[in-house]
């Protein structure tokens, strides 16, 4: 596969070193590595074939959407305004706190309190997902099939 496609392309020019020097393999391999490689690869391929031939049930297909649904339910419950029956009793809640927890609360700076106390429930809106369950499951199950360019961007070194 000799490359003759472009005479104008830049040539690596490192003074004092020929192309043959530069292209010589920089890495060593264990002795006899390539002689035993084909049988080793074929053995692994056969083993993987055996594993994938077993009828396996993919729990991720059930568990991952379940976690998602549970997370949505929990988030919804958390942000719902409390009803009369579930109105927390401030005194009881205070009594249940340890001295350490109360001290930690008292030590919070005003700026830190903002995120806890100054946000009104009414100001928070939850965006409705536009994805169907099937699309979410499909996305989660194809996690490994990441495009090469995405990988390059992510690993950028």
């Amino acid at each position: 596969m000799q490359n003759t496609e472009n005479h104008n392309e830049p040539k690596l020019n490192l003074e004092g070193f020929s192309e043959a020097d530069l292209k010589r393999k920089a890495f060593k391999t264990p002795e006899g590595y390539f002689e035993n490689l084909t049988p080793r690869i074929m053995e692994n391929v056969r083993a993987s074939e055996h594993v994938s031939a077993k009828p396996t049930f993919n729990w991720n297909r059930i568990l991952i959407p379940s976690f998602g649904i549970a997370a949505i339910a929990l988030t919804t419950w958390f942000f719902l305004p409390p009803t009369e029956n579930t109105e927390p009793n401030f005194d009881m809640a205070l009594a249940s706190l340890s001295v350490e927890e109360l001290t930690e609360y008292a030590d919070l700076q005003p700026a830190e309190l903002v995120s806890y106390e100054l946000v009104s429930y009414n100001e928070i809106t939850i965006e409705e997902s536009t994805f169907s369950d099937e699309e979410i499951i499909e996305y989660l199950s194809t996690e490994d099939e990441i495009e090469l360019n995405t990988l390059i961007d992510e690993i950028e070194i």
Partner: peptide, 30 residues
């Protein structure tokens, strides 16, 4: 397991300083 040749070592180190895509392209081309 790396060959002791200084220029090859430097060349490999130089290649490792490249962004990933340039590195891939250089290796495949050169």
């Amino acid at each position: 397991e790396v060959s002791g040749d200084a220029i090859q070592l430097k060349l490999q180190q130089a290649i490792l300083t490249l962004p990933t895509k340039q590195r891939l392209v250089f290796n495949m081309k050169y």
